[in-house]
């Protein structure tokens, strides 16, 4: 309700303040699952820094879903009532949100997926990164570093979430290529650094001197494992550790040589989706974001493709400083 109210106030203010331009401007809403964590903040900041927003071509409103599928659905209804021109959607989970997309579709508003897929055929288009691929990449890094033999542990995300399912699929694909590697333990730490730290402390006790590699399905959990290793007075560099996402702490850990991370380019996912949303309303629109130049592997295709896959960027000693500089 509060968000409805806020949106109404904002809409009223907009109409009275800018009577002439308001009609010409495109109104685009972004419904994201939650703004508490760093990743979605980078995503939201990139959306607001899109050249089309800065030049005044479109107005963008970001709705915080507060990690609740129902809240997101309510926000969709708000946007439909308010007559938004297009919606960018980052659902809390693949399976949650099909109904919201359906409602927007029935109202004639195109919906563009970003970052997380939604299990609906009605998405106009989706910009994201393939989690199976990242799972494969991080596991591959760990396995390569230990020479395709030895023992690893896998720290998983919350069981049943799409990112966990797909990253695990990628992990398994890489593990299948190294039949001599044994998975000693795999368990969830719910994306949490503190939980992963406890888990790793206990595993180091249960398998003294046996663990060679740690596959963390996100950076936070990989960082927790690093702290556990440090706490046990072991040499972090003698372990092969990898995570996914490229959060700031992980970049620092990569710089220190303690782990590998696969950067998910949230900024590109956000800006790409916005370009697609504008193009659907302005037929002669040319994408304004730099990302299309940055990723030649992801062609614009006149904004008509059903799926755009933003490539993953392995964070290396070479590019880490440049990536860190972007965060400041």
């Amino acid at each position: 309700m509060k968000n409805v109210f806020k949106a109404m106030v904002a809409a009223c203010a907009l109409m009275t303040a800018l009577p002439a331009t308001a009609e010409a401007k495109l109104k685009i809403g972004a419904a994201v699952y939650g703004l508490n964590a760093e990743f979605m903040q980078i995503w939201a900041a990139a959306l607001k820094n899109h050249p089309a927003v800065k030049s005044g071509l479109v107005d963008v409103t970001v709705f915080d879903g507060k990690y609740d599928a129902l809240t997101q659905q309510d926000q969709f209804n708000t946007m439909i009532t308010q007559g938004y021109d297009a919606i960018i959607f980052v659902p809390i989970d693949v399976e949650a949100g099909a109904a919201a997309v359906q409602a927007a579709h029935d109202a004639g508003i195109p919906v563009f997926g970003s970052n997380t897929r939604v299990n609906s055929k009605l998405l106009t288009s989706y910009v994201g990164s393939d989690d199976v691929k990242s799972g494969y990449m991080e596991a591959k890094y760990v396995l390569d570093k230990i020479g395709c033999k030895g023992n690893v542990v896998v720290i998983e995300g919350p069981i049943g979430q799409s990112a966990q399912i797909q990253r695990l699929e990628g992990n398994k694909k890489a593990l299948a290529e190294c039949p001599n590697v044994k998975v000693l333990e795999d368990k969830t730490a719910n994306w949490s650094r503190a939980e992963a730290q406890t888990l790793m402390e206990n595993w180091l006790t249960a398998h003294p001197g046996e663990i060679n590699g740690v596959i963390g399905q996100n950076d936070e959990m990989a960082l927790g494992a690093i702290e556990a290793i440090k706490g046990a007075k072991l040499d972090v560099k003698s372990f092969a550790i990898a995570g996914i996402d490229g959060v700031t702490d992980a970049l620092l850990a990569v710089k220190a040589g303690n782990m590998a991370s696969i950067l998910q380019d949230g900024a590109a996912q956000a800006q790409g989706a916005l370009d697609l949303a504008i193009a659907s309303k302005m037929p002669d629109y040319k994408p304004m974001s730099d990302i299309w130049k940055q990723y030649p592997d992801m062609p614009w295709a006149d904004g008509k493709a059903a799926e755009y896959s933003v490539p993953w960027t392995p964070v290396t000693a070479e590019n880490v400083d440049a990536l860190l500089a972007l965060r400041k």
């Binding site: 650094r193 503190a194 960082l223």
Partner: peptide
């Protein structure tokens, strides 16, 4: 203690 143990202070802690 938690921040010192995990190496950074997290808002979701």
């Amino acid at each position: 203690l938690l921040a010192a143990r995990t190496g950074s202070a997290l808002t979701q802690a």
